[in-house]
């Protein structure tokens, strides 16, 4: 077993060296795709954001990050509030490895 692990460990750097790689997990290679959101079909907030997507992608990106973070926080604290109602102890835990 020990020898096997040693061998495997030796394989790690070797395999790193022979990695001719592409961003495989990122899916198909990006061709020149331009997307225009169809603002004729949506109204209100959606229209505002679709429009932003078409005209000012940087602003849209900033918005996306802020909104995602805000949504994560809101949902996180909301769920926290609900979980506390169940009466479970959510502040401590024992670490048992085996």
């Amino acid at each position: 077993m020990k020898r096997l692990t040693h061998k495997l460990l030796a394989m790690v750097p070797t395999s790193i060296l022979c990695l001719p790689v592409t961003l495989w997990a990122a899916g198909d290679k990006a061709t020149n795709i331009v997307v225009v959101a169809d603002t004729r079909r949506v109204t209100g907030v959606m229209k505002y954001f679709s429009n932003l997507y078409n005209t000012d992608i940087l602003m849209y990106a900033i918005w996306a990050v802020i909104l995602t973070a805000a949504m994560g926080c809101i949902l996180g604290f909301l769920m926290d509030f609900i979980m506390e109602r169940t009466g479970l102890d959510l502040k401590s835990r024992k670490i048992i490895e085996h």
Partner: peptide
């Protein structure tokens, strides 16, 4: 602030 800054531009879409 972001809303105020970005409210200015509006593009039309046609297909």
């Amino acid at each position: 602030i972001l809303l105020v800054v970005t409210a200015a531009s509006a593009a039309e879409v046609s297909q």
